[in-house]
Design a binder for these strands. Structure first.
Lengths: 219, 219
DNA sequence: AACCGTTTCAAACGTATGTTTGAAACAAAC
DNA sequence: GTTTGTTTCAAACATACGTTTGAAACGGTT
């Protein structure tokens, strides 16, 4: 109960607040008061606010990247020799996220939202941290993608990967809000899993799209 | 020279800094020192920092939405009666951006980056401002999209539009950085127009993708 | 040249932030 | 039961922020 209680409560509170409001817009006082711990606890246990941000990411990204490695292993072992298809690679990502031990039902959407924020909010320290901490699974994902789309030039592939990342990070980072809008407008409830089920075919189709357009608009 | 000079210098500096660092991370002191005007000038001319943010958006979004309306008019008049295709609708957006009078060659990428930030950074006041100021062209775009994808259910269309927005906002919001990475890694120079030329087919293919995937992963 | 509305300026205001401090509370070890 | 290392706590620190102020400078009008 002693240390880990305070540490976990800070992480829990920070995770939710960061996901709701972003990093700069969330103060340590908000976090500590939500977590019902003393203000100084963050600096005592983590050292700094930036270190707390890293810890929040590490807490879910480390298990996720482990699960992901397993999924990739499985993927490669199943398709003996032949390259896994694009759909299956993308699906492995989604499935790994869904399979992860969740603290609660909002876990996945917080997870997604944070990932989106990591890409969008231009926090240099975070990007550096993530790059050097999780370069391995990321590199492996890139390698798989390359094998699954041999018809693309390096440049085309590069841009289309960015498009995929964007669609994913953006959608997931506002998944809660988007789900809410859809519910009030059309009256349909949606889970994060369903979003993923719609996103994967969209991305796969985009990656396999015919050539780039002429610079001049279609006549 | 008198008023407009100071006002424009503030807008120019704010635009660049907001695009580089985001809104919360950019202070009025950074802006005024870059613009070489007195700190109080922002509050004198605009009233508040939030109002300055609105002014920055209005300065490029108002001409853009006007250009866009023309493009849409043209699009609808050309295809007498028949519905414009998805590619052409999307291309109208890109072309309107390219056709706009630019203050300099970095104009488009700043424009894109700001649009991306508007979506990503959860600034309530900005979203409200944009919604009530530019609801008309946005609504028209949505209507065109609906006509161009009659095969989609309302729910499918809703999500796929989000995916498109995400890919676009995200890519464009970091277009500068992404172009730089590509140049150092593969040694290829890229213009924003070329990104658009790659993005449009990607999006169109995604929108026209076959049905959503089963919730259970492909066996 | 005197006036007047507008704009600039240096300085200050109040508030919020991340971080540090030093004492108090606590828990385990001897 | 005292000691020791760890954790909590209230308070303060230094700094940065958006905003306000009141006087000075400016520019056109009469």
């Amino acid at each position: 109960m002693a240390q880990s209680d305070t540490v976990d409560r800070i992480l829990d509170a920070a995770e939710v607040l960061f996901a709701e409001r972003g990093f700069s817009e969330t103060s340590l006082r908000m976090i500590t008061s939500k977590a019902k711990v003393n203000l100084a606890a963050v600096n005592y246990h983590f050292g700094s606010k930036n270190a707390l941000i890293h810890a929040v990411f590490a807490r879910f990204l480390t298990p996720y990247s482990a699960t992901l490695e397993e999924s990739f292993d499985e993927l490669e072992s199943k398709s003996e020799g032949r390259v896994p298809t694009l759909d299956r690679i993308l699906w492995a990502l989604a499935e790994s996220a869904a399979r992860m031990p969740q603290r609660n039902e909002r876990g996945i959407s917080i997870f997604m939202r944070l990932l989106g924020l990591a890409y969008t909010q231009s926090q240099g320290h975070l990007r550096k941290f993530l790059e050097q901490e999780y370069s391995e699974p990321f590199g492996r994902f890139m390698r798989l993608l390359k094998e699954a789309t041999p018809e693309l030039s390096a440049v085309d592939r590069y841009w289309r990967i960015q498009f995929m990342l964007g669609a994913t990070a953006f959608t997931m980072s506002s998944s809660d809000a988007l789900i809410g809008i859809l519910e009030t407008k059309i009256g349909v409830e949606t889970s994060v899993q369903e979003i993923a089920a719609r996103l994967v075919p969209f991305l796969a189709a985009g990656m396999k799209a015919p050539d780039k357009m002429q610079i001049t608009p279609p006549a």
